[in-house]
Design a protein around this nucleic acid. Sequence first.
DNA 1: CTTCTGACTTGATGATCCCATAGCCAGACC
DNA 2: GGTCTGGCTATGGGATCATCAAGTCAGAAG
Lengths: 167, 167
Amino acid sequence: MAMTFEGLLADRSRWRTDDCSIGKAMDLIGTRSAVLLIREAYYGTTRFDDFVERVGITDAVAAARLKQLVAAGVLEKRPYQEPGKRTRYEYVLTRMGEDLLPAVLALMQWGDTYLQPSGGPLTVVQRETGSPVTIRPRSRSGDDLGLDDLAIVSNDDWVAARREAAQ
Amino acid sequence: MAMTFEGLLADRSRWRTDDCSIGKAMDLIGTRSAVLLIREAYYGTTRFDDFVERVGITDAVAAARLKQLVAAGVLEKRPYQEPGKRTRYEYVLTRMGEDLLPAVLALMQWGDTYLQPSGGPLTVVQRETGSPVTIRPRSRSGDDLGLDDLAIVSNDDWVAARREAAQ
DNA sequence: CTTCTGACTTGATGATCCCATAGCCAGACC
DNA sequence: GGTCTGGCTATGGGATCATCAAGTCAGAAG
């Protein structure tokens, strides 16, 4: 598989830039309110009023954004009932929503490093040990990878190369 | 350090939600065009017209967004000169911009999984081996962590706990 | 039957993002 | 001197995102 790398990551000329997963992801969750609602869901918030208060947005925005996240499949709307109260709905993360955790944590980690005068108000730790958690690109064999260690290939090329290698 | 965990990640009541790194990060790079420009920078793009064409935005938007990213410190504007041409400027990632890679890759990984019918057009691989790259939360000792393995503590608590442990 | 509360919905207004089109400007080339 | 090109800047308009304020609606409590 002959391939030259012009830039940091790759040979740009070998793929098109439409149909990009990053763009599609940004179309779904590219607003401040959506990301902060998802953050709150990680923190354990499930109820409408708690979302409104803790995210610091208006109820109108919260209603619109929650509806949109449910439609996208990131959150699920579930009935619940406290004793002596009527049925209400709570918002819980789907698997799809849980799998956004790396992206949200990476953003938090970056913000802690570069946008906070003294390291950010919260720390993510391993529950068992209390030691801090980092999030980085990682090879199959478990090594931490930097920008220079990475390359991007078009999926078609990659599949072809695997098939070739398998022969 | 006594602490109960109500939600998936943590005890919500022990910190405030203003001053959030995720919110600050979204204020800086929370637009589709900004993220896609950063993606392009990872791919090796440096010149204005290439950004415009490959991201698929108008030159007006590109100019505004690039200016904003330079002001934020994510990109740096550098003069360059091709032989027989006048001096122009190229946009290159700063360290701060490079460190956004985990977040962008995590988003791409998520989009590939959930927003693409057949896995996305591109694959990120380790340059040396060609094996695919994943991005996940990781403990200090190198273990992959899931949502259930994580906890969030307020930084004040964490520092206090470390001091206590050190005694 | 009225009140209250949790969970929205609606409406008005403003900021921001994007697109499309057009114009500008500095130099290399003729 | 005129043209071309790369790299912007300016203007106008539509969509989305946000805020604030007000209204709705179901049912438990009084």
